[in-house]
Design a protein around this nucleic acid. Sequence first.
DNA 1: GTGAAAGCGCTAACAT
DNA 2: ATGTTAGCGCTTTCAC
Lengths: 334, 334
Amino acid sequence: MKITIKDIARKAQVSPITVSRALNDKEDINPDTKNRIVKIANDLGYFPNMLAQSLKSKKSKTLGVILRDISDPFYAEILQGISLTAAREGYQIILSISSRSGVNLDLEYNTLKLVLQKQVDGVLIIPEHEDPRYFAYLQKIHTPFVLLNRVPKEIQCDYVSTDQQEGSRLAMSHFIKKGKKHIAYLVRRPLSGVALTRMAACEKTLLEHGLSKDSIRVVECDDTIVAAYEQTKRTLKQNSKVDGVYAWDDVMAMGAVKAAIELGCGIPDDIGIIGYDDIELAKFFNPALTTVRQNIQLIGRTAAEILIEKINNDVLIADKTVILRPELIVRETA
Amino acid sequence: MKITIKDIARKAQVSPITVSRALNDKEDINPDTKNRIVKIANDLGYFPNMLAQSLKSKKSKTLGVILRDISDPFYAEILQGISLTAAREGYQIILSISSRSGVNLDLEYNTLKLVLQKQVDGVLIIPEHEDPRYFAYLQKIHTPFVLLNRVPKEIQCDYVSTDQQEGSRLAMSHFIKKGKKHIAYLVRRPLSGVALTRMAACEKTLLEHGLSKDSIRVVECDDTIVAAYEQTKRTLKQNSKVDGVYAWDDVMAMGAVKAAIELGCGIPDDIGIIGYDDIELAKFFNPALTTVRQNIQLIGRTAAEILIEKINNDVLIADKTVILRPELIVRETA
DNA sequence: GTGAAAGCGCTAACAT
DNA sequence: ATGTTAGCGCTTTCAC
């Protein structure tokens, strides 16, 4: 069955500790013994049991990642960024999906607990809600963590996000420049703090340009492409004045585009559509998406880097807050 | 610091094993003691150390997943399927990226080893090559595994895949029906066994319909949307006769569509394009992708289910081979 | 240069 | 109903 250092020790006629020394390139070992042992280990197909190593060393070389839905390109790209950084630094990843659809506090809470039980050295979290109990719990855990894509006011911690206000400002300014006056803000349900932040920034920008608060309306919608498509269709039908759709993310924007096309609306003239994220496909979509670009993989990479640095320095909170600057990418939909 | 059962034991004036019993709902424990212990455990914010539990029980309740690139929607959806099934069955996932681009045997090999060291109960692998050494190594490991998306002839094992020949047959038949006679097979580089299988099925179908082997040509390409776009542009420019592109996957098909549009080719009349996979976005792309549908999440779910069943039954090889049937989804590009 | 003892946190098996 | 012993696989400390 599974080979342990004991098996090797027996075969090599030495004690287990000698085997350990040989396999870990320690000093104080006779090169001959060492070679002999290494050879036997290879022959037997031995590899160390990291469970035992970690139990002893209290370092698992593992990062927990908690997010909502990997089939969403935005999360997938973040995860990709995290993965590559983690691998480079010698960490593995335990992936946990916090909810399959919508938001579920208990599930997210349990997910975190499970990950912690695995003795991960750190956790990367994309929170899906702002429940104070969750943040309170986070504050008590003894494992370093970094939040992604959320600026938590409730709690002092490290996080990586992008400037959501700037993003919305860019989008609205562009709409205004193009003469749009009746914007639908197609936003993920349930409304999050980030959603409200973006909304407030939109209103602020519109007001600054002399437009009324009524020039933008919130349209809530599940964050799937299908829901965005259907909701946009409904909205455009009910509201012939709407001339711009500001979507929560690119996937929802793509749904909106499809809806507009099917209703025979000209894009961007009848209806301008602006997405968010600039996922890889945005550029290749037809018409190519105008969108607020976040450097998605960079978010993941940066968060992983901060976390690993905290782990290495044995720090629980480093007060590192990175806010990346978004950028408007003007293409064909607005 | 981190709380252990010892800490609880001390506080409760009992022995550690009593704590263990209390926390694991065992018989043979005084309900009062139990409640007292559970309360203390909660107060202290205790959670078990799964490293220790696993070391003892030799079950880690963890699955390894090895794949290539999560930012690719196809892999992401597979991973999503795996994740949900694993979570439902009480397993967690260690995710390992086998290579960032292209194919790298050593990396894939090391990735596997690392995952095994973590004592996962099983491994799900989407292999990226057919190196016999890798398969030879797989045959020797004492951990159950399931291969996805590959029909390995080199080795007896469990796998979940789709009928690649049928998929290509469907695509070619459709092209023929539409009068296409000069197909470019836009395929991922480096060429894999699956790629050749699909190619052979294409040729066979064409011959059966009285067309010559020359009616299809292989166009190799990195499997990114950008590369597919560029390669398609090049191909269409050099070869005015090409009237159909059969793409390796939907992402590449989207790149091809963009190229065709930019060259002013009418889709599907001048150029028909057929993708593969039917990722969620395929339907919403403009023009909507005609594609060979695989039920992607089902591949992941099925593989995870087979693996977990093997783990539960303590079986290394169950000889379960599931070949899912693909389906042609005719939309607007062909 | 090598080994013996001890312990990481937890839990079966065997007492009491 | 509770405690003792022992051991999962590995490594640190100290002795030889």
